[in-house]
Design a protein around this nucleic acid. Structure first.
Lengths: 242, 242
DNA sequence: GGGGCATTTTCTGTATACAATGCCGGTATG
DNA sequence: CATACCGGCATTGTATACAGAAAATGCCCC
């Protein structure tokens, strides 16, 4: 017990500001995204409560929220654990996201305000920049921001909400299944191209661009069905770094 | 206070079986679907707790669950209320469902086992039968079952989960916006045709059938932007039947 | 009679205590 | 040696108490 992630999560918990379930969920989600909390990590309610200085009630709500986002597994009478999406689920998540995000960008093409387009360009450029200087966390951040912006501005808010969920889920599995040798999943200028297609109102081309972008991303992963380092870990119930 | 819905929900709550959050959510969801609980109805935690004989903790979990299903609105420091989807959201929900369910049936075509096909046919026939004898609740039940089966058997489980959510949401808005004169939203033999297309493996035709089916359903609703009997109610915060 | 303010009431947010359950060890036994 | 059983421990499930926010009520003044 008492691993590193306590301090990781704690961050700036003190300093007055009362922490709510939203804050806890954010911190944990972020930690999962950053691979600070590997799949299978146990998240006991009291422990989290102590870390954040709140009682189980709040932690519970946070965990429930994360469970509905498919970030953690919450089984009755068992400790909540960081979820380990299977290879099959990973493929399905990508397929779903291609469908949904494709439709969203098609709807979005030609309907974006100048400000929104600028915001998108900003994120794309910042991503490229971060990649150039090798700052991978920042790169991921900006990439996520960009897709998040797309979801938020979806004319169809229902699809937008679904896309938000799918972006998160794919990000998690990308972090999980990234080929070990690979430093980054950056794909040269694809986001920039997408944004310009959106600006130009090329709906079908934009859908195609997203489609290819996501296929390319999936191809960068190691989804060979080798004997599950992941499943083993979660089945054996090992807590990491012990 | 103390309206009819107390007894509606209570049903067979006594008789030993310990009631959990799942049960409560099921009962409330059903009641919303059946229009027993009109949009805007307040659902205070203590009241529900008394009705079901459990404490607020359990009720809370049930409400959170329903909120994540978009059945109720849960705002901080305010009473949870039955959600009133806007006309715009209704259109968007239908559009999203056309996209997702279209894809699901296309994936499903030709891949269904004989047993599943029989189960689908059964629901389709029961629906027609129920319509014939004017039993609308039963008709809705079987229609829902059919679409639920489609979602459950989706080869892509991620899309399947999204479809489950969308089916529920569309059902709610159908109940809400059904043209008042209309006794039923049954569309002659469309489900039967769909099932046979699935059996025959006609992916594109099946997608088209679902598409048309859903367009037809949406067309049966009254989505004219008239001065919102619904929005007024929820804005004025009226509890019904008072 | 109507609008604004204070009070009261209702309801949710959080913490905590106790019950119930699952997990993990030791131990005995075939 | 493998396996089944059993008891203690860790952790979640549920109920409840108290604090704080919002809404409903009533009152006063205009």
């Amino acid at each position: 017990m008492s691993q590193a992630w306590h301090e990781e999560l704690q961050a700036d918990v003190r300093s007055g500001a009362r922490v709510g379930d939203r804050d806890i969920a954010d911190k944990v989600r972020r930690a999962v995204l950053m691979q600070r909390l590997p799949p299978g990590t146990k998240l006991p309610e009291v422990t989290l409560g102590e870390v954040f200085g709140v009682s189980r009630s709040v932690v519970r709500k946070a965990l429930t929220r994360l469970a509905s986002e498919h970030v953690v597994d919450q089984r009755p009478n068992q400790v909540a654990r960081v979820r380990a999406p299977s290879i099959e689920e990973t493929r399905e998540t990508f397929a779903a996201r291609r469908l949904v995000e494709g439709e969203v960008v098609a709807l979005l093409a030609g309907r974006l305000s100048a400000e929104t387009l600028d915001a998108l360009r900003l994120q794309a450029n910042e991503e490229t920049e971060a990649h150039r200087r090798g700052d991978e966390p920042a790169r991921i951040e900006h990439s996520l921001n960009l897709h998040h912006l797309l979801a938020e501005h979806s004319p169809n808010r229902v699809l937008g909400g679904m896309l938000t969920d799918l972006v998160l889920r794919t990000s998690i599995v990308v972090a999980l299944y990234k080929r070990s040798g690979l430093s980054s999943c950056y794909q040269e200028a694809q986001h920039e191209r997408l944004v310009e297609l959106l600006a130009a109102g090329e709906a079908d081309a934009a859908r195609g661009a997203i489609h290819d972008h996501l296929l390319g991303l999936e191809a960068l992963l190691d989804l060979s069905p080798r004997e599950s380092r992941i499943d083993l870990k979660s089945i054996l119930g090992q807590s990491p770094a012990t």
